[in-house]
Computed example of a mutant assay.
Amino acid sequence: MLKAAVIRWAVPGDWVKLGELQARSYHDAYRKLLPHDFLNRVTAESRQSECRERLREPGHTGILLIDHKAVGYISLRFPISPQQGDGEITALYLLREYWGRGLGTRLMDWGLERLRERSCTEASLWVLEKNAAARGFYERLGFLPDGTRRVVTRGDEFVQLRYERRIGT
Rank of each mutant, 00 (worst) to 15 (best):
R162W: 07
P145R: 02
E157Q: 15
D146G: 03
R106P: 03
G136A: 13
V127P: 01
A123K: 13
G136P: 00
E129L: 15
R114P: 02
V159C: 08
D109S: 13
G142V: 09
L95A: 04
Q160T: 05
T153V: 11
G155T: 09
E97H: 10
R114T: 01
Y93C: 00
E122S: 14
R114H: 14
A134M: 04
R101E: 13
W110N: 08
R140N: 10
R166Q: 10
G168F: 11
R149N: 04
G111Q: 02
G168A: 14
R150K: 15
P145V: 06
R101Q: 15
L115P: 00
A132P: 00
R118P: 01
A123W: 08
W110G: 09
W126H: 06
E157K: 14
E129R: 15
R140S: 11
F137A: 11
E139S: 11
K130Q: 13
L92D: 01
L107K: 05
R114V: 04
G100E: 11
G136T: 07
T153I: 12
E122M: 11
L144E: 10
R162M: 09
E157R: 15
A134W: 02
W110F: 10
R118N: 14
V152Q: 11
G155I: 03
Y138I: 06
W110T: 05
L144Q: 11
L144R: 12
L128Q: 08
R101L: 15
K130N: 03
Y98E: 09
R150V: 04
Q160C: 05
E97F: 03
R101V: 04
R96Y: 07
L144K: 12
R135T: 00
F137H: 07
L103A: 00
W110C: 02
Y163K: 02
M108I: 04
R106Y: 14
G100C: 13
A133G: 08
L125K: 02
L94C: 05
C120E: 07
Y93S: 02
